[in-house]
C-alpha cells in the first residue's frame, strides 16, 4: 500500500479545527464492541501487580526454608543406602531395605495396626464430622455454639494434654488400653479437622441450591444425597486425607492410650530410636516419604483446601 488516506484534504482539516474542542456525546453513538477484538484478559489475582523480572527476598527465603525442610529427609534417605551402620559412608548397599522388607516382622505388625486404626478412625471421623458440619451450617438450633467450641479446642490444645486426659479417662471408666482406645483417641482428634474442612467448604456453598432442589420435588434425603453430598465432596475428601495422615503420624497421644499388643508404627519407631537405632529406620523413611509423595500427588487438587485448615 503506497499511500495512506489518513486525513481528508486541507479544506476538511481546516473545517475540523474550527469545531469545539469537546463534544457531548449522543447516546446513539454507543456501540457494541467491535467483533474480533480480544476478550477481557484476566490474570490470576496473585500474579497481577508484580514485576516478574525480579527474584525477590521472599522467593529466596522460600527456597531456603524448603531446603531446610527437606535437608534432614535427604540425609536419612541417602544413608539408607549406606553399607555400614554409622554416618560414615562406606559404600552402596541395599541391605537395610532387605532387612526392612524381609526381617522386620514387628515393624510390619505395627504398620498394620497403624493402618487399621488410621482407616477406621478417619472414616468414622469423616462421617460424623461432615454430618455435623451440615447440621450446623444449615439449621439453627441452640447448642450450635457449644458444638463449635468443643470442636475447636482439641485442635489447639497440646497433644500431651489430650493424651493424658484420655489416659486418665480410660483408666477411670475402665476401658482397657489397646486398639480400641487408640481408635477412640484418634477419632477424637480427627473429628475437629474434618468438621473444619467441611464447614469451610459449606461456607462457599450456595444455600438457594437446596431450596431449588426441594422446589423441584426432591425429598430431604434426595437433596442430601444428590445435591449436598456431591458439592461438599472436596471438603470431605480433604478431611479424610487429613485424618488418615494425622492418624498415621500421631505419636504423643497414642503413646498414652496404647496398651500391650497395640504398638503402632510411630511407637515402634520411637522404641527403635530410644533402644538401639538400626539403619532400617532410614530405609523405612524413604518408603514412608514415597508414600506421602504419592498421596500428595494423588490429592493435589485438595492441597489448598487442606492448607486452609492447618
Amino acid at each position: 500500500m503506497s499511500t495512506s488516506p489518513k486525513v481528508k484534504s486541507a479544506a476538511v482539516a481546516a473545517k475540523l479545527k474550527k469545531q469545539p474542542k469537546k463534544m457531548r456525546l449522543e447516546p446513539s453513538r454507543l456501540v457494541e464492541a467491535p467483533k474480533g477484538t480480544p476478550g477481557p484478559y484476566k490474570l490470576p489475582k496473585n500474579q497481577m501487580f508484580q514485576d516478574h523480572r525480579k527474584f525477590g527476598f521472599s522467593n529466596i527465603m522460600l527456597v531456603l526454608v524448603i531446603a531446610f525442610l527437606f535437608m534432614p529427609l535427604f540425609v536419612v534417605v541417602t544413608y539408607s543406602f549406606n553399607a555400614s551402620r554409622g554416618m560414615r559412608w562406606t559404600g552402596f548397599s541395599l541391605e537395610w531395605y532387605y532387612k526392612l522388607f524381609f526381617d522386620s516382622k514387628e515393624l510390619w505388625r505395627a504398620f498394620a495396626n497403624s493402618f487399621v486404626i488410621a482407616i477406621t478412625s478417619s472414616i468414622v471421623a469423616t462421617f460424623l464430622g461432615s454430618l455435623s458440619a451440615i447440621g450446623i451450617k444449615w439449621y439453627k438450633f441452640k447448642s450450635r455454639s457449644y458444638i463449635q467450641v468443643v470442636s475447636f479446642l482439641p485442635m489447639v490444645l497440646p497433644e500431651v494434654i489430650i493424651g493424658i486426659s484420655m489416659l486418665i479417662f480410660f483408666t477411670a471408666v475402665k476401658i482397657p488400653l489397646g486398639m480400641f482406645s487408640i481408635f477412640v483417641a484418634h477419632t477424637t482428634f480427627n473429628l475437629p479437622f474434618v468438621f473444619l474442612l467441611v464447614s469451610a467448604r459449606l461456607e462457599e456453598f450456595d444455600f438457594s441450591v437446596i431450596e431449588a432442589a426441594r422446589d423441584l420435588g426432591a425429598t430431604e434425603r434426595q437433596t442430601l444425597m444428590k445435591v449436598i453430598v456431591p458439592s461438599i465432596m472436596p471438603g470431605v475428601m480433604s478431611g479424610l486425607l487429613m485424618a488418615i495422615t494425622m492418624s498415621l503420624e500421631d505419636f504423643v497421644i497414642t503413646f498414652f492410650v496404647s496398651g500391650p499388643g497395640s504398638t503402632t508404627l510411630p511407637l515402634y519407631v520411637y522404641s527403635m530410636i530410644r533402644y538401639g537405632v538400626s539403619p532400617v529406620i532410614n530405609a523405612l523413611s524413604l518408603v514412608l516419604i514415597l508414600g506421602i509423595m504419592l498421596l500428595a500427588l494423588g490429592f493435589r487438587r485438595f492441597l489448598k483446601t487442606i492448607a486452609a485448615s492447618s
Partner: peptide, 15 residues
C-alpha cells in the same frame, strides 16, 4: 511444604 509435614514426626526427629 506438606510432604515433610506429613512425614512421620518421629522419623523427622530421628533425622
Amino acid at each position: 511444604v506438606i510432604i515433610p509435614f506429613w512425614t512421620n514426626s518421629l522419623i523427622r526427629i530421628y533425622a
